[in-house]
Design a protein around this nucleic acid. Structure first.
Lengths: 225, 225
DNA sequence: GAATTATACTGACACTATGTCAGAAAGCAA
DNA sequence: TTGCTTTCTGACATAGTGTCAGTATAATTC
């Protein structure tokens, strides 16, 4: 579904298949590393094929052995980010029990992960503005999030925990809040602190979904920095 | 402040100075019109200097008489949008009385205006990803909004209408919600309906600022489509 | 470990879009 | 018409892209 390649096949007896990396694998990884390095300290608009390959010792044209273009490379980074963020937000999506606790946990994880990956998220978003294919991939990424949040809201509505609201529209709006708040807060210098971003997210998600009376109630087991 | 040029000077007796437009003025306006036309039906990434001037009968190089580059042109569009959106959201920023009513009004206006200007907003945002100067202009634009919302929240906190929350962080988060929800919902095809977007914004802003108990109370005087 | 095959890589090329500039054309005043 | 100013254009240099024929390096086989 995500095109994210796990070292899936592992045919038993072959010796150390995970360490047996071809030159091709190493070059490709070097390019990805160089891209990660690059977006950490430069905006995407300054990225060129030369600037990436220069970090690897490869010639510019070697790049095209592994990726169709820069946007293709950025799609790889996007898939990495998506995997991480989805893992981190799992608690609320799948947790059983007091949903406010799980929501807090998911939001806190999301903020932490995006703090770590902020520049990548920002770069992939910027890159999506200049490429049709990557833009579609970005929409799919955000769309999957919208789906997951919508489902969770609808499930809680059936339990009577969330009132009568348009789950899809609210999920869409809340996700845009999170996504672009973290991109702007953590994706460029000077990077903001995590706590205020997280707290604002919590406040807004909880009060608009479960009602403002839930706000202070279940936070005792969470560490505030 | 906004660089938005009004026909400012009007030295009394000179005949019809408003109609006395130089050729230069007309050419410049033609380029702006062509850009507006363009972004309505194409993504910004497909915009080139040729594609814009072709609509005007001018040669490509004439463009540089009026703008430094495409991003300079887009900054003009951004200033137009900013002016409109700021005007529309004025009620909540300056209104005296029940703030929830004014907030509703401002959000509804904002959604209507952004529905009308969605493609322009989207194009300027996309363009900002590829130009340092325009990116800064964009940050200033959003920053002015953050300031205005923060002030209003703090004022209402002094009145005891809004509880103890970090005004700046919450303003930042809520503004990102609005901004990117309308960009995505109205800036590209297929465009979404306005009502669900507006209702979701209302729900989230009101419940997180004033508390969810305000939700249904003051909506009787507002038309729902 | 030499021979053979397959893979990875490179430099040169054609192409697109940009921004500049000297000079041509058009507008305007007297 | 003349002369002056504003507006516009075609030609040029530049930067980055993506391709390809051919070379170098790695992997495999004996």
């Amino acid at each position: 579904m995500s095109g994210y390649k796990q070292s899936q096949s592992f045919p038993g007896l072959r010796p150390q298949p995970l360490l047996r990396v071809s030159k091709s694998d190493r070059s490709r990884a070097a390019i990805v590393d160089a891209a990660l390095e690059f977006v950490w300290s430069h905006p995407f608009r300054d990225m060129t094929v030369s600037s990436v390959t220069a970090q690897t010792g490869l010639s510019r044209s070697a790049f095209y052995q592994y990726f169709n273009d820069l946007h293709d490379l950025m799609e790889t980074l996007l898939n990495m980010v998506e995997y991480e963020v989805f893992s981190g937000t799992d608690p609320w999506f799948t947790g059983i029990g007091d949903p406010v606790i799980f929501l807090r946990k998911s939001l806190a994880n999301m903020v932490d992960i995006c703090y770590r990956l902020g520049p990548i998220l920002r770069a992939t978003n910027d890159a999506a503005a200049t490429d049709e294919r990557l833009h579609k991939a970005w929409l799919q990424y955000t769309g999957r999030f919208d789906d997951a949040v919508t489902s969770r809201i609808e499930a809680d509505q059936e339990q009577g925990l969330i009132g009568d609201l348009d789950a899809r529209s609210v999920a869409f709006a809340l996700n845009r809040l999170n996504l672009y708040a973290v991109i702007e807060a953590f994706g460029q210098r000077p990077r903001r602190q995590r706590a205020p971003v997280r707290d604002a997210s919590e406040l807004i998600w909880i009060s608009s979904l479960y009602g403002s009376e839930w706000l202070g109630k279940t936070s005792s087991n969470l560490v505030r920095t």
